[in-house]
């Protein structure tokens, strides 16, 4: 199973973290710091037919 390290950003508290993601995984995400579910996937892309995020910068 292909695993990549992906970056996530909590849209509630701003906490940014990386996590290994298995291809095709289907899991609920919550911020490890504040438990919010507003988790933005910053790099790479989920295993679907959606367009790659046009930018990869992670600044405010």
């Amino acid at each position: 199973m292909a695993t990549t390290t992906e970056t996530f950003r909590c849209m509630m508290c701003g906490h940014e973290y990386t996590e290994p993601v298995e291809k095709g995984e289907d899991k609920e995400r919550s911020c490890p710091k504040c438990r919010s579910n507003s988790i933005r996937h910053l790099k790479g892309r989920p295993p679907s037919n959606e367009p790659r995020p046009s930018r990869s910068e992670t600044k405010e």
Binding site: M11, M12, G14, E28, S30, S36, N37, S38, I39, R40, H41, P46, E50, P51, P53, S54, R55
Partner: peptide
């Protein structure tokens, strides 16, 4: 994810859109 990108591109603070289960 798409909406956060859209908002950011438009210069709208993406944090104004929230998701909760």
């Amino acid at each position: 994810q798409r909406l956060w990108n859209t908002l950011e591109k438009a210069g709208v603070r993406p944090e104004r859109l929230q998701l909760e289960w």
